[in-house]
């Protein structure tokens, strides 16, 4: 019985993401606004990447293009060598807003993707229950979303994406609406799950500490037009714990990133 779960956890050679010359612009009042200009990067399977930048730098736009929600003006996205042009279950998405379907219980929400793909009931329940247990939601499996706290809803959203074993997990400021304590717990939980699954993660945030704590690499983004300004390797040891936030290495990285972001934030404020 346990073999099924193990199998789905083992098969990790997927999750190779390539973004080539990606530009996004749209027309506003007859003028074209460049949201993103020639963004290039490659992500290896199993990497945890943060897109970090001030608001308006287009970091969520990159995520939306990779998800297939919006079409780029030029350039391409490939996931596992396949061209991305529309949303699919191999790119899981966790939204900033609470996005569980209000008319489904926690269990039904997590099960939804598997059910759509016609996975047999017994397999579904094994997988869903495994993940519910993994994030401590098993006893809330029959609750409706409005009966859950914000942190619980986001945990359910994360496993709703992961249960489909996506090549890449896209996370758009998923913890931004949570209080500081809950946010820390969620970050630690996310890292433990990720270290088991080794799913490629692209995580959008504007919080420097969050980016440093979570990621292998940070892509710091600039504004006007949105682009990747610098790629920073986060060399902090794993597994990471909250007390690591006080290490000298962490503090010096934090300062370095802070300076980069500060420049861009000032630029974006001037333009407004």
């Amino acid at each position: 019985m346990a073999t099924l779960v193990e199998k789905t956890l083992e098969q990790r050679v997927r999750g190779f993401v390539e973004v080539e010359n990606l530009s996004v612009s749209f027309k506003r009042k007859g003028q074209s606004v460049h949201v993103l200009e020639s963004v290039n990067f490659k992500i290896e399977p199993g990497e945890f990447i943060c897109l970090l930048g001030p608001s308006g730098c287009g970091k969520s736009t990159i995520l939306n293009v990779i998800a297939g929600f919006i079409q780029p003006s030029s350039g391409f996205v490939f996931v596992d060598k396949r061209h991305v042009d529309s949303p699919s279950a191999d790119r899981g998405f966790v939204f900033q807003q609470y996005s569980l379907l209000p008319w489904k219980t926690t269990y039904q929400n997590v099960e939804f993707g598997l059910k759509i793909r016609g996975v047999p009931k017994a397999k579904r329940s094994e997988l869903v229950n495994y993940y519910l247990n993994r994030v401590g939601l098993f006893k809330h499996r029959h609750s409706y979303p409005h009966q859950l706290s914000g942190g619980m809803q986001q945990r359910a959203s994360i496993i709703r994406a992961l249960v489909n074993s996506p090549s890449v997990l896209l996370m758009d400021e998923p913890f931004a609406a949570l209080d500081a304590q809950t946010r820390h717990m969620m970050q630690e939980l996310l890292l433990t799950i990720w270290s088991d699954l080794k799913t490629t993660v692209i995580f959008v945030t504007h919080d420097i500490e969050e980016a440093l704590f979570l990621s292998d690499k940070i892509f710091v983004m600039g504004v006007n037009p949105g682009r990747i300004k610098e790629k920073i390797d986060v060399t902090l040891d794993r597994p990471r714990h909250a007390d690591g936030l006080l290490s000298p290495e962490f503090i010096s990285l934090n300062r370095q990133v802070f300076e980069l972001i500060r420049e861009e934030t000032l630029k974006s404020m001037d333009m407004d």
């Binding site: 998800a67 297939g68 929600f69 529309s86 949303p87 699919s88 279950a89 790119r91 899981g92 998405f93 939204f95 807003q97 996005s99 379907l101 008319w103 489904k104 939804f112 993707g113 759509i116 793909r117 709703r160 994406a161 489909n164």
Partner: peptide
């Protein structure tokens, strides 16, 4: 729109989006 996107990136095609998202949302 958010819930439509949720359905899309879980692999839902028209029919499931209709049955599991649009109709219950309109209820």
């Amino acid at each position: 729109l958010l819930l439509l996107r949720v359905g899309q990136c879980l692999g839902a095609k028209q029919w499931h989006i209709f049955k599991d998202i649009v109709v219950p949302g309109a209820m």
